[in-house]
């Protein structure tokens, strides 16, 4: 692995820059306090103070890690302040949206590949759907799903996650279902195969590598969608909701901890789905797209 050392170097550099920025950004407050108290600030005082403020503009990484530790390991999982609890809500939204997204993506791709009119009608709208800022629609989606009586916020949030995650699946599946070349199609024709046999025996199997390759992008999109949904539907639970609460109560530590928890969860999700993709690819004979 020739990547590990460069990646670690870049990460270390980022952390160093972060610390420097934390000192710089938080120093204003330190100097203000000192001026009010009429005292001078030495360099070492400045550094210790900028890294231990309660409401820093930019908390130092170790402060965020401490807050994360506090809200994951130290808190009961059932507690509202536990990041594990909040993360599990976001995860549930993500997986639900991811599931919807896969089903919708495959269904639309099938229609688009099998029907010329379906393709002409739906493909432009599929592209347009992704250029529309979903956040603008979020409040409406909440109202509409309440009106049809879903009761919880989970469904509208999952719809928003699905809205972002179906597209990568759709694009890959269209490509995959169209991947058999004319020769392969002609061969089945000489066997007198029907449209549906061509689909099940040729198109669908050849689309599988494309399908698995799209999952990683799709799950990341679902996760972004879940957080965006929580941010834009005034959710009360989930990592996005913690960011909202941190913002409303002026508690930057909560926001940063939620942000880091989101990054860690995203990494785990992408890693797991990536592993699943590799496994599936190996089972199918190691063909990459």
């Amino acid at each position: 692995m020739s990547k590990i050392i460069p990646v670690l170097t870049v990460l270390v550099a980022l952390i160093v820059i972060w610390y420097a920025a934390a000192v710089k950004m938080n120093s204003t407050w330190t100097y203000d306090q000192a001026e009010r108290a009429g005292s001078e600030v030495t360099i070492s005082e400045l550094i210790t103070d900028t890294m231990s403020q309660k409401r820093p503009l930019l908390p130092a990484p170790h402060q965020i890690m401490a807050e994360l530790w506090d809200t994951t390991v130290e808190k009961k999982i059932t507690s509202k302040r536990s990041m594990v609890y909040q993360g599990s809500i976001t995860l549930k939204t993500t997986l639900l949206g991811f599931g919807f997204g896969i089903v919708i993506g495959i269904a639309l791709a099938t229609v688009i590949v099998l029907s010329r009119i379906g393709r002409l009608t739906l493909m432009p709208w599929a592209i347009i759907s992704q250029t529309i800022p979903i956040v603008a629609l979020a409040p409406i989606i909440v109202v509409l799903s309440n009106a049809v009586g879903t009761g919880t916020l989970m469904v509208p949030k999952a719809i928003i996650a699905a809205y972002l995650s179906f597209y990568p699946v759709l694009v890959s599946m269209v490509k995959g279902l169209q991947s058999p070349d004319q020769m392969q199609l002609d061969l089945l024709k000489t066997y007198g195969a029907s449209q549906s046999e061509v689909f099940w025996k040729l198109r669908l199997p050849s689309s599988m590598p494309y399908f698995f390759a799209s999952l990683k992008v799709s799950v990341a999109a679902a996760f972004v969608g879940a957080v965006v949904a929580e941010l834009s539907t005034s959710a009360i639970a989930g990592l996005g909701a913690r960011m909202l609460i941190g913002s409303q109560f002026g508690e930057p530590m909560i926001m940063w901890a939620a942000l880091f928890a989101a990054a860690i969860l995203a990494a785990i999700l992408i890693f797991l789905v990536g592993g699943f993709e590799k496994l599936a690819r190996n089972l199918m004979g190691g063909r990459a797209v």
Partner: peptide, 26 residues
């Protein structure tokens, strides 16, 4: 640097960076 930054940037591109919004407002 390129070998080190590519994977990091790729990962960051997949994150819900929009969550920075409240911090940027602050």
């Amino acid at each position: 640097l390129k070998r080190g930054l590519m994977p990091v940037a790729n990962f960051f591109a997949a994150l819900p960076i929009v969550g920075l919004a409240p911090i940027m407002v602050m």
